[in-house]
């Protein structure tokens, strides 16, 4: 009897916490479909009496969310590809090539994991003004690529270290050059590690706020995190469209998360432990 009561209690608590963790998002979804009249007349928590899809088109066009979203997609894909390529190459050199300073180089890069963004923001800001790329997506791509490097290099090199030596040998004896070996053999073999790195970088870049807030002033070039904030400032009394914009902004991460949540959980564990 006591045991049963305990189990019921356990589930009740777990469910209550689940509700606390998930309800704000459900509420967000609900008010994204309401108009102000409905909210102001007292239906704050319930289902919308009438579904207002136009909130979404308002958010996408008048609220500029479409533009912010595309900017984020561009910045994200460019910095992920760039940082992945660079870190794959560095990771290969430090983990498998034969030279003296591989370890030291890895330590040099790992310094970057411990350093908070605040430590570099002003020099970056000044430099970006100096080379006249303030207010460009390119400036963000450069910064995000750099931010993603340390963790990516660490995860990839840890993975590459454990590959058997014979992997390169057989094709080397067949006369393949280093680039064929690297792109044709090593890269395909470490796909799981690449997935981890891509997920980790994606979440870092898609959700980044500080650099985007400081390096972009032109509202046409804002990424989604800062763009939403700007939109909130402009339409803060307009509940529906803001809710819609929030739903649109969180949709990619939540959808990808629900689709491959095992992988994402694994990536974030690895990212945290290595970092």
């Amino acid at each position: 009897m006591l045991k049963k009561a305990l189990i019921v209690f356990k589930y009740a608590v777990l469910s209550l916490i689940a509700l606390i963790q998930i309800y704000p998002f459900i509420w967000m979804l609900l008010f994204s479909l309401k108009d102000n009249n409905e909210i102001f007349s007292g239906n704050v928590m319930g289902f919308p009496r009438e579904i207002h899809w136009e909130n979404y088109s308002f958010a996408l066009q008048d609220g500029n969310t479409m533009k912010y979203f595309l900017n984020s997609v561009i910045v994200c894909s460019a910095s992920i590809v760039l940082s992945l390529l660079i870190s794959l190459m560095v990771a290969y050199a430090v983990s498998r090539m034969r030279w003296k300073y591989g370890k030291q180089l890895l330590t040099f890069f790992l310094l970057g994991i411990m350093i908070p963004g605040q430590a570099i923001i002003l020099p970056i800001y000044i430099t970006i003004h100096m080379i006249k790329i303030y207010n460009t997506l390119f400036s963000l791509i450069l910064v995000y690529t750099a931010i993603c490097l340390p963790t990516s290099i660490f995860v990839l090199s840890a993975y590459m270290q454990n590959l058997p030596r014979e992997l390169e040998e057989s094709s080397a004896l067949d006369g393949a050059n280093i680039y064929r070996i690297f792109f044709g053999i090593i890269v395909p073999v470490i796909k799981p590690a690449i997935a981890t790195v891509v997920i980790f970088s994606f979440l870092t870049v898609w959700n980044e706020f500080m650099f985007a807030y400081i390096l972009i002033g032109d509202s046409n070039l804002m990424t989604i995190t800062v763009g939403l904030f700007a939109m909130q400032g402009k339409y803060f009394t307009n509940w529906g469209p803001i809710g819609a914009a929030l739903v649109i902004a969180s949709f990619p991460t939540i959808a990808i998360y629900l689709a491959i949540n095992k992988n994402i959980q694994k990536s974030l564990i690895i990212g945290a432990v290595k970092g």
Partner: peptide
Amino acid sequence: TVYFTPVVVSSSVIGLLFLKIYNPDYGI
């Protein structure tokens, strides 16, 4: 899965959402 969901959402969405949650008149 449920407990972890907020982690993948950006702090700016979380911030703007809580701005609404704390709204004196219509926040939950």
